[in-house]
Amino acid sequence: MSTRDIYITENRGEALGLVTEQSSAEERFQNSIIRPILKLQNDLFIEVFKNYISKHKNDFYGYSTEKKLQFIENCIQKDIKFRNSLKGIVIGLFTVNEYLDYIQNSSNLNKRMMNMLIDRLKNQVLLFENVASV
Results as ranks from 00 to 15, higher is better:
Asn42Arg: 13
Asn58Met: 09
Ile46Thr: 09
Met116Phe: 04
Arg120Glu: 12
Gln30Asp: 02
Leu40Arg: 15
Arg83Met: 13
Leu127Ser: 04
Tyr61Ile: 02
Met116Asp: 13
Ser64Gln: 10
Glu10Gly: 02
Lys67Gly: 00
Glu129Cys: 10
Arg12His: 11
Cys75Met: 04
Glu98Gln: 14
Gln70Lys: 14
Glu10Leu: 15
Asn105Lys: 14
Val19Ser: 07
Asn31Ser: 01
Glu27Met: 06
Ser133Asn: 12
Arg120Ala: 04
Thr65Val: 13
Ser54Asn: 15
Lys39Ile: 05
Gly13Met: 10
Glu47Arg: 15
Leu69Ala: 06
Ser107Asp: 02
Val131Trp: 00
Glu10Thr: 09
Ala25Phe: 01
Val48Pro: 08
Tyr102Leu: 06
Gln124Leu: 12
Tyr7Arg: 12
Asn123Arg: 07
Phe45Glu: 11
Gln30Cys: 02
Val90Gly: 07
Phe60Tyr: 11
Tyr63Cys: 08
Tyr102Ile: 04
Lys55Glu: 15
Ser85Val: 09
Val131Thr: 04
Met1Ala: 14
Ser106Pro: 02
Gln124Cys: 03
Ser54Ile: 11
Glu26Trp: 00
Asn11Thr: 15
Asn123Ile: 01
His56Leu: 07
Met113Trp: 00
Ser54Arg: 15
Arg83Ala: 13
Lys122Glu: 11
His56Gln: 14
Val96Ser: 10
Asn74Lys: 12
Asn97Trp: 10
Gln77Gly: 02
Asn110Asp: 15
Ile91Gln: 05
Leu69Val: 02
Thr95Tyr: 10
Leu40Trp: 08
Gln77Lys: 10
Val90Lys: 05
Gln124His: 09
Glu21Pro: 03
Lys68Gly: 01
Ser85Asp: 11
Lys81Leu: 09
Ser32Phe: 02
Ser54Met: 14
Asp43Pro: 09
Lys81Ile: 05
Ile80Ala: 08
Asn84His: 11
Arg83Lys: 13
Glu129His: 05
Ser23Val: 03
Thr3Arg: 15
Arg4Leu: 14
Ile33Glu: 06
Ser133Glu: 12
Ser24Ile: 03
Ile37Glu: 04
Ser54Trp: 08
Leu126Met: 08
Glu26Ile: 05
Phe94Ile: 02
Asp119Glu: 13
Tyr61Phe: 14
Thr95Ser: 11
Leu18Trp: 00
Tyr61Pro: 01
Gln70Cys: 07
Lys68Trp: 02
Glu27Cys: 01
Gly92Tyr: 00
Met113Ile: 02
Met1Lys: 13
Arg35Tyr: 07
Val125Ile: 12
Phe94Gly: 02
Leu18Glu: 12
Asn130Pro: 00
Gly17Tyr: 03
Leu44Asn: 13
Arg12Val: 12
Asn58Lys: 14
Ile103Arg: 13
Tyr61Ser: 08
Leu117Asp: 07
Leu121Ala: 06
Phe82Ala: 05
Asn97Gln: 13
Lys39Glu: 12
Lys50Ser: 12
Gly92Arg: 04
Lys39Pro: 01
Leu86Trp: 07
Asn51Ala: 15
Leu69Thr: 04
Lys81Thr: 03
Ser23Gly: 03
Ser85Pro: 04
Asn51Asp: 15
Val96Glu: 14
Lys122Trp: 02
Leu100His: 09
Gln70Ala: 14
Asn58Gly: 03
Lys81His: 06
Ser2Asp: 15
Ser23Cys: 06
Leu38Ile: 11
Ala15Pro: 15
Phe82Ser: 07
Ile89Arg: 14
Asn108Ala: 07
Phe128Arg: 00
Ser107Met: 06
Glu14Pro: 11
Asn84Trp: 05
